[in-house]
Structures are given as C-alpha cells and as structure tokens.
Design a protein around this nucleic acid. Structure first.
Length: 573
DNA sequence: GCCGTTTTCGGCCCGACTGTTTTCAGTCG
C-alpha cells in the first residue's frame, strides 16, 4: 500500500466519522495525518521499518498503529467496522458543494438513502425541503451542486488556472478605485493543481468590484455575493472568488487568502504567543484589543518577528520554524536559469530547426542548451535512427558557428529506456554525445519491481547524465509509474546522475516532495522545458515554481550553474 | 486523535455568507 492509498484511507475514515457525528477534532486529526501522508517525501513503509512512523506530522500512537496494520495486512479492522455503521458511498456526497457532514447525516438517517443518484432523485422529488433546517432553496442548491460536480473533472491543472487568474486580476485592476488585484490561494503557492481561483482586491469600496466580477465574460453562475467576498462558477465548472479589503489592511488579507490553512494556523498560534490575535483584517493585541493594520505581507511577518516567507513555502512543512531560526533557504528564481538541457527540434517531433531553437533560447537569456531529440525507439515521435542522429551533429555544428560564442549548443539525446531496461542507442553512440537524457515513455504500468529495475539500470549506465520526468505522470489524469523512488534516489546519488523537474505544466515531474527529498540526498536537479516549440521555452517558470516549493536554491540546480561548471561536471562524468 | 518555550490534560484559528432562522447552524476557506 503506497502513501497515496494510505492518505485516501484516512480521508475516508475522516469523512465517515464526520458523517457519523464524531467530535470534529478527531476527524481533523485523521485529515491532518492524511495530508501529511499525501505529501510525504518517502514511502511510509520506510518509516515503519525504521520505527519512526510517529515522526510524521499528525501521526500519533493510534494512527501509527493503523498505518502499521494497513502496511502489514492491506486491511484495517477499524475501517471495516466503520463502513458497516456508515455507508462509504456517503463520502461521495461530501464532494457536492454546499453539502457538509451535518446535512449528509440528516438526509441519510431521515430518508434512508445512501447513493448519489438516490440523493438526486430525492432532491428532484422535493423530498429534501421539508427536513428540519432546510427549505426549497437548499434543495435547489444541492441539485445545482450535483450538476456542478458532474461538470467538473476535479482539481484544475495550474496550466489552466494560472492564465485565467491573471486574466481576472487584470480585468478587475481596471475597475475604478482598485489599488491592487492579486491572485492568492494555492495558485499563488504554485501548487501543480488547484481547487479554485482566489483573487484579492485592495479597494476602499467593494460594490463596483463585485459587479465587475460577477459579470465577467464566461461566468455561468453566481454562487454568492457579499460586501467582502463573492464567488462565481465558469462554464467549465472552474470556480473563482474574490475578496475585497481596504488597502491599509491588504497585507493581513493577502496573507490570509494565500494560506495554506495549516500555515495560517501555525502563524496564528505564534501570534497568540506573542500577544496578538491574527485575522484577515488585522493583528489585534489580546490585552486591550487595539489593532495593528498591515498594508503589506512583510509587515505581518515582521510584527510576528519573522522574515517574509515566500508563498511557495507556506505549507506548514517547517517554514515557520525555519523563519524563526533565520534559516529560510534562498530560493532559486527564473532569472537564475542559464541552461536548458531538454529541447526538441524538427529532428524528431519539434517544430523548429536547431538554429531556430537556439536563437529562441538565446533571446530568453540562455547561455547553454542541449538538443535532445528522441531516439529511434520512440517511433511515434519520429525518433532519430543512428544515421540521422549523426547527421544532426553537422546541423548543430553549423548553428554553433552561426551564433558564435553567445550560446553553447550541446548535442544530446533523449534516449528511450526500453522495456528490458537497456538503452535505445549502443554505448559507443552515447559516449560520443555531450549530454544524455534518459526517459521512460513506455511500459509505465509495469509492476513496481520491473519498472524500478529499468530506471536503475539506466541511471547506472555511465553515459547517462539526466533522468527525465522520472515517473512519467501526466496531470490531471495519468498517474506515474509505480517507481520505488527511494531506490531511484539512492542510485542517482551514487551515480551522480541528475533528476529532472520537467517544466511542462502537465508533467511537473519530479513533484515537489520528491524534489525536496532529492535535495536532501545531495542529488543534482535539472529544470528543463522539454520544449517542442518557441513558446514552450517560456514555461520554465512552472518548473522553477516546483523547485521553489521543494526549497531548492540555485546551487542545487545544474541549469543555474555557470556554463564552465556545467561543462566540467559533464566532462567528469 | 494529536500535541506541548503557557499545558502530559485541555485545548485545538477566525471570520464571511447563506438559508432558515427570531438568535443561529451549516458550510466554506
């Protein structure tokens, strides 16, 4: 049982306990443990073997025991019993916007129904409106929620949400009286997918902003509209909300709206210890109640005795403690990147020639690139056979001659890791390349032992420099290969092979917990665009965001090294 | 159920909006 499955199990337990009416803090404890497991950078199994399960945040005696039982037997007696008391299908109802555990429990117990279709039928038949505390409006809201659930495919990939958020913010910035408009929430923390879009507005009055927001083009439904907060749903089910706060309170408001929830809890606890109550409106002295207004986030953190914490770190993964002790990392920035070592051209499935790609990279300030077209085995992408591959060397030589010393063009390859773990080109070809990127594209569904063995074999090939998009995941739908990541890390650390953070917004692979673990083990990281066109070169920003979420500095990333250092590293390998 | 530079027991962040309410509960972030 992997971390994801463990996390899902504890989330289910929390859902069912909450519907059952268990005290809220117990259900919160299960959710906290589930969240920790979901973002854990190593297999829970490794903690179990070491006897350190309780070092996982939110895991105490009881939950550690349950993890152990799940890892040992794949089952959990506690959950089996719970499922008999509360039908597990009810957990699905909680996903319906506007439905919480209280109403779910009420409807289930009163009407004796337990599936989503039964719920929809009951709502259509007008059977919900007569329940205590409910009326025709809540019945209609539940129906609308069920329909909205069907439209939405779940979480929104950053690649869709980020441009939309910028668009909304730009539109609202134009409203008279608006001082600033900033995306907040998980999007500002650059999570690879987000639940909804949050925009924070600084303005003295909110009326005009709310009017403009709720009538934006594409808005299908207004979910709520108030003085300080409104929310809407777009046609494709994406939800957005805005908060409006006075400019002199924008700092506390933006801090609050950026989250994460757990980070805010930590901060508010710290505030209480220092004699303040922290809310989105202000810091308030607990003795006397006078307010301290913060127009910027910097003032909020400073008042609490902390340096400003970059949004990407605000996940309650130790950043508040690090800030208190003055050991926040100096995070890598997009402007630090000088190299891009995973680029395609017309040689395989790219759109531009070597020269055109090199010019485009140069225009973006890159000082070194590697041309890494697919190898012959990936027929679908027009992989290069050995003869065509060798002819490409000439194309690269001419491009280098044309551009002179402004940019270093390396001749590389994205070489397939075959089903048996061997590479797609013979060693003598690989030996002649400047840089070798190895990738898994096929056989991703192989069992853990087999697919891991392939990755390890590739890492141990002395010619391989970078393992690209290690798990092969595609957001939002395709899960990555079931790799034993600890084994991959151990092999990469030993061989000195770099692991890639692929900047394609549907990949973002390594993800941030794995990238953070790789850094801990001293493994060099490559942030590459995997560009197939000129515009693709601009998505570097997404990869850098993942690196920042993983606490990486520029020293950890080979693309940020001076070219001489990079060349020396390649030569030594 | 977890956790501790206030506590090993008694807390566990704080507020907006909606609907069904005549003072509040439920949901959400």
């Amino acid at each position: 049982m992997n971390n994801r499955e463990l996390a899902d199990t504890f989330t289910l337990i929390a859902d069912l306990l909450e519907i059952k009416g268990e005290i809220i803090y117990k259900t919160l404890a299960y959710r906290k443990a589930a969240e920790s497991l979901a973002v854990l950078d190593r297999d829970a199994k490794a903690y179990w073997k070491e006897g350190t399960l309780r070092e996982i945040p939110g895991v105490g005696e009881a939950i550690a025991g349950k993890i152990e039982e799940l890892l040992k037997t794949g089952k959990l007696k506690f959950l089996t019993k719970l499922k008999k008391e509360v039908p597990p299908s009810l957990a699905e109802w909680l996903k319906v916007p506007g439905l919480g555990s209280k109403k779910v429990g009420l409807i289930w117990k009163t009407l004796k129904i337990k599936t989503l279709p039964q719920l929809e039928k009951a709502a259509r038949a007008g059977k919900l409106r007569d329940l205590p505390g409910m009326g025709a409006k809540s019945e209609a809201a539940i129906l609308a929620g069920i329909e909205s659930l069907a439209r939405r495919s779940g979480r929104i990939p950053l690649a869709r949400a980020y441009p939309l958020a910028l668009e909304i913010a730009a539109a609202l910035k134009k409203v008279p009286g608006v001082v600033s408009a900033e995306p907040a929430g998980s999007l500002r923390r650059m999570r690879s997918d987000v639940g909804d879009i949050d925009i924070l507005i600084a303005a003295a009055h909110s009326g005009a902003v709310m009017e403009a927001f709720t009538s934006l083009p594409g808005v299908a439904r207004v979910l709520g509209r108030g003085e300080t907060k409104s929310s809407v749903e777009f046609g494709d089910g994406v939800r957005a909300q805005v908060w409006v706060h006075p400019p002199e309170r924008f700092g506390t408001a933006l801090q609050y709206a950026t989250g994460s929830k757990d980070h805010n809890v930590k901060l508010r606890e710290l505030a209480l210890k220092k004699g303040y109550s922290l809310s989105e409106h202000a810091l308030k002295r607990t003795n006397g109640g006078s307010e301290i207004l913060c127009a910027t986030e910097l003032e909020v953190y400073r008042t609490l005795g902390l340096p400003w914490i970059p949004p990407e770190l605000r996940e309650d993964h130790g950043e508040v403690e690090a800030a208190r002790q003055g050991r926040l990392p100096r995070l890598i920035e997009t402007k630090d990147i000088v190299g891009d070592f995973h680029i395609h051209t017309t040689g395989s499935d790219g759109r531009l020639s070597v020269l055109e790609m090199a010019r485009a990279a140069l225009k973006r300030g890159r000082k070194a690139i590697a041309i890494t077209d697919h190898s012959v085995g990936l027929g679908i992408a027009g992989g290069l056979d050995i003869a065509r591959h060798e002819r490409q060397a000439e194309e690269i030589r001419r491009a280098q001659e044309t551009l002179g010393g402004a940019i270093t063009i390396l001749h590389g390859s994205e070489v397939e890791i075959r089903a048996d773990g061997t590479l797609d080109y013979p060693d003598e070809i690989l030996a002649g390349l400047d840089l070798v990127v190895a990738s898994l594209h096929t056989g991703l569904r192989q069992p853990r032992e087999k697919v891991t063995a392939r990755a390890l074999k590739a890492i141990r090939n002395p010619h391989v420099d970078i393992l690209a998009h290690p798990t092969g995941r595609l957001l939002p739908d395709r899960e990555g290969a079931d790799l034993d990541m600890e084994a991959v890390f151990a092999a990469a650390a030993e061989a000195g092979v770099a692991l890639e953070i692929n900047s394609h917004p549907n990949r973002l692979d390594l993800d941030d917990p794995h990238a953070r673990r790789a850094k801990e083990l001293g493994i060099p990281i490559a942030i590459n665009t995997d560009a197939h066109s000129e515009e693709d070169l601009d998505r570097l920003f997404y990869g850098v965001s993942i690196a920042r979420r993983a606490w990486l500095g520029k020293e950890d990333v080979i693309n940020a090294w001076p070219v001489e250092k990079l060349l020396a590293w390649l030569k030594k390998r």
